[in-house]
Design a protein around this nucleic acid. Structure first.
Lengths: 211, 211
DNA sequence: TAGATTGTTAATCGATTAACAATC
DNA sequence: TAGATTGTTAATCGATTAACAATC
């Protein structure tokens, strides 16, 4: 892709467009203008048109956008139609919850296995996915070639796990541990720092109350 | 607070400063300059100084910042020293995982109860917190006055739950359901949309691989 | 004091919004 | 065609970075 690089802020908005368009589609709405969509989503129509135009002209002057076509295009841009083999490292409470999370499987993120160090879990299944031991991970990755690793391990082991997996060739991590990972340039990390969200939340709550 | 409003981008960076300062503190580092901190954190020194100055001059020319003092100030700004009674609505896999999540309790987010509609859970405990029935929530809120509600209920019930709880006087929600909540102006919401993070992750992975 | 580093103002950069010609 | 609405350029706004006087 030698296209001009799309800003990260724009990319982060795509899932939200995807979500709203999916809703419109389920309500059998076939066309929508940027103005109508902007009212529903609480953003400007200008932003919607700018954002979509990073990926090409999906609309039609005088008409607006075809909901289904736009939905399909965004699905494809986000790669949701391609399927992604995903492993979860750490089968504790959080790992189990994530394996059971419906929002992943039906967008093509297939959990193909969980890994833990607790021998009691060996051979068990969570949401149809087998739980294996961490020392089996390397050969599993070689054989199955998963794309994405979800890291729900304790923070004192996450750096080692990430390093190991980078060596195995994994290029994408969803990290739940309360640590910033350092990875090579060709590897991407999304952090879900739950404590950070709580802190931002309580700060904003307090500052509203104090006004 | 009639101070000038601090931009949201700055507030969202505070937890990260808090985290790095905590680490320095545990390593017995007593002072740090904005330049040194900027190298560790991978941001500019200018940004650090600008950010901190929204809250007052915490440094000293020629010296830098006292780590413990700065840590304590940020702790206080974020309200982590005040304690927040928190309830979790939805005691499914995710709710249980969150109740067990250590990162909340030791930053003052005390889970005082979970609520669900499954009668089988009534009277049980998760991580020392009692599980109660959703119809007990109103009287519980009146008595205990929690500050924060974590919403880990299915997406088709989250709007009703949020509406109910706004009426009960709850001002802050951490929402895990895949829906944007509409709340009054004096109520704050932080969304944790796990699918969105996965989508952004896989998009970025694909666009790196394609270059 | 001299050196270091902040706090803060000014310059730059990037993202958002507005405007409108192109066109369905 | 006339009306509507996009795609895109230009203007504005806000956030980041640079620079440096203040000062410990």
């Amino acid at each position: 892709m030698s296209e001009k690089q799309v800003p990260l802020v724009v990319i982060k908005r795509l899932p939200r467009y995807y979500r709203y368009l999916g809703e419109l589609l389920r309500n059998n709405i076939t066309r929508i203008s940027s103005t109508e969509l902007s009212e529903k989503m609480g953003v400007t129509a200008s932003q919607i048109r700018q954002d979509l135009n990073y990926f090409g002209g999906f609309g039609q002057q005088g008409y607006g956008y075809n909901v289904e076509m736009l939905y399909n295009r965004i699905t494809s841009i986000l790669g949701l139609d391609r399927g992604h083999k995903t492993v979860i490292i750490g089968a504790g409470n959080l790992g189990r919850a994530l394996a059971n999370y419906g929002g992943f499987a039906n967008r093509g993120y297939n959990i193909v296995g969980l890994f833990d160090v607790d021998p009691a879990l060996k051979g068990t299944f969570i949401a149809d996915a087998p739980v294996m031991m961490y020392d089996e991970l390397k050969s599993f990755v070689e054989k199955e070639k998963p794309d994405i690793a979800i890291l729900s391990v304790p923070k004192n082991s996450v750096r080692k796990v990430a390093d190991d997996m980078v060596k195995m060739g994994i290029k994408a991590f969803l990290n739940f541990a309360y640590v910033d990972l350092e990875v090579p340039d060709d590897v991407v990390v999304e952090n879900v720092h739950l404590s950070d969200s709580m802190m931002t939340l309580s700060y904003r709550m307090a500052s509203k109350a104090g006004e």
